[in-house]
Design a protein around this nucleic acid. Structure first.
Lengths: 332, 332
DNA sequence: CCCGCCTGATGGAACGTTCCAAGGTCCGAG
DNA sequence: CTCGGACCTTGGAACGTTCCATCAGGCGGG
């Protein structure tokens, strides 16, 4: 009633366990007859190699661990597609654990992955302390996606948040807006860079006095709350650049509650170009991040480390503006 | 430069490896002094137990494999939350692999999980052949979510699709609709049951001649195509029951292209009550599935099997109608 | 004709744990 | 003073692979 092992296969095929092992990894110098006998035995017994035992001796598991901050955000679903594709092509299996954006749960996920002896770790939207990440990177190759790091052992894949935010804000300025507010993403990855670029761009266009940052989060509720607070002021903005698509949709929801519509009353720009933004119901103007490419690139960097590279790599991909129908000229 | 093992810890603490093992699993009958010494050594060396080696001898990994048909569908994100919660509470780590809805990739994911010797398998939205699933269930506990099975070794967690579809159709009938079409989900899990219940309900209300099933899929594009074909007929429906929320949003998109709005021109009902339906931009009337509860329940059934249960279990949870703003009386 | 080499095959050691049988120490009871 | 039994502690076997050293044949060249 127990699962067959390599010994059972060997016994049935009338060969040694070593020969079975050779057939499994189809090595040369095996006679066709014995090879066939072993393969027949494998089929008859329904034998499956035990990756646990193999990993113990080979000291590699063929598994990449992926930690995802917010698996409800479709942005990360696309990143996963890229990771999965590249990992599969390289013969690795990518397995995913969600962290729910909590540093504690993320730490637990990473610990479990280390116990399981994954060969590499991709952390998307990580909120773990930098020293913790550096400690992990001393054990196994770590690549951060959407978050940067100063550690020489940690590679990163980012989009150019500074450039992306500038595209968004200048698009609004180009449409004639001046009172442009920003819904902040807090300290989560991408948040500070986008906010700073918003401020820099506003100043560059002599709009420093129109600057207005509403504390938000990378969530629908965060975006809605921020928008409500903006609407409660004496002079609400005519345009809002939200830290990401999900927050932008939350902001649009808050506008709807107040009887306002985009772009008629207020223009809205998101960030990510997730599938949410492309929805016929949203048609959100947003900044495109090359999501799949980021996933692929992250795996690429892990593979390079496994191949022996030691210098740190930081890959920055270019974002692009996607104009849909939540932006237009200011009212009046 | 290699990771410390239990022997290194033992050497440093001046005890045997067996004693270290006892401390790790904090067994009784270990003197406080030695326990402290071992713990100190563990901390100094940064030792982490090797789950691979442990699994080899204990013959269990503490890992549950979750295969997800469509990780872009937020319905499954909620199921994952339920799975993760219950698994963590029971001391298991749930790891996820997406299958992209392709039977081939799903098969590969399952094979990899079997090699990794997961202790149990949860398959959500599986499209694998029944005999293949039964074969897997002979090796490891398998629970299907949203799909049923006749195999006595495979447990299932479902919502009552028949009841859910009836709620949707009768809601539309109650609003006065008669030309009610259905956007089909094909043979994917849930599709046939919802279609059959649509037909049964229509007949029960003497609307057999109004029945109209448009071939679709559980995707946005599937919903859009089906709606376009419905709109191209001589007498388009005044209401549509779509196989799920994603398809419903696709259908709404197609309506928008044609200059139509819901519920003014055509009422739309989805299925799942995923976060997509609740979006302020959608406000989709839909049928609620208890998504988190389904995830929790699935793990519960795996745990029972691991505990020795042999009889098959089939858990059917009740759906409920959620009325939002895509349904109303027929036009005119 | 023998030596060396190549091909094909094999047994045993190792990987890092857990588990088990057994050994040592110490204490209290007889 | 001895002995049984807690209480601690230990070495070795096992888990199912891979890898290495080795070996049996067969064959070509000196």
């Amino acid at each position: 009633m127990t699962r067959p092992t390599i010994r059972d296969v060997a016994a049935r095929a009338g060969v040694s366990k070593s020969l079975v092992s050779l057939v499994l990894r189809d090595a040369p110098h095996v006679s066709p007859a014995k090879r066939a006998a072993v393969q027949a035995a494998i089929a008859e017994l329904g034998y499956r190699p035990n990756a646990v035992a193999r990993s113990l001796v080979s000291r590699r598991t063929g598994v990449l661990g992926i930690v995802i901050a917010d698996h409800h955000n479709p942005f990360f679903a696309d990143v996963i597609d890229g990771v999965d594709e590249r990992a599969a092509a390289a013969g690795y299996a990518a397995v995913i654990r969600p962290s729910g954006g909590s540093a504690a749960r993320e730490g637990a996920a990473v610990d479990k992955f280390l116990e399981l002896r994954v060969d590499g770790l991709v952390m998307a939207g990580s909120s773990l302390p930098a020293n913790r990440i550096a400690a992990v990177a001393a054990i196994v190759p770590v690549v951060l996606v959407t978050r940067s790091s100063r550690s020489p052992a940690v590679d990163t894949v980012l989009n150019d948040d500074g450039h992306g935010a500038r595209l968004a804000v200048e698009h609004l300025i180009g449409l004639g807006h001046r009172r442009i507010a920003h819904i902040d993403g807090g300290r989560a990855p991408g948040g500070p860079a986008r906010r700073k670029s918003y401020e820099r761009t506003m100043r560059a266009h002599r709009l420093a006095r129109q600057m207005n940052v509403a504390g938000g989060a990378f969530t629908q509720e965060g975006g809605a709350k921020a928008m409500r607070s903006l609407l409660a002021t004496a002079t609400p903005p005519t345009a809002v650049f939200a830290c990401n698509d999900v927050a932008a949709l939350g902001a649009l929801g808050a506008m709807r509650e107040a009887g306002l519509a985009a772009p008629r009353d207020i223009s809205i720009v998101g960030y990510d170009n997730s599938s949410l933004a492309a929805l016929p119901q949203s048609l959100l103007t947003t900044v495109d991040q090359p999501r799949m490419a980021m996933g692929r690139q992250a795996v690429e960097l892990v593979l390079e480390r496994l191949d022996g590279r030691t210098g740190v790599r930081r890959v920055v991909l270019e974002p692009g503006l996607i104009v849909r129908s939540t932006t237009g000229p200011p009212p009046g």
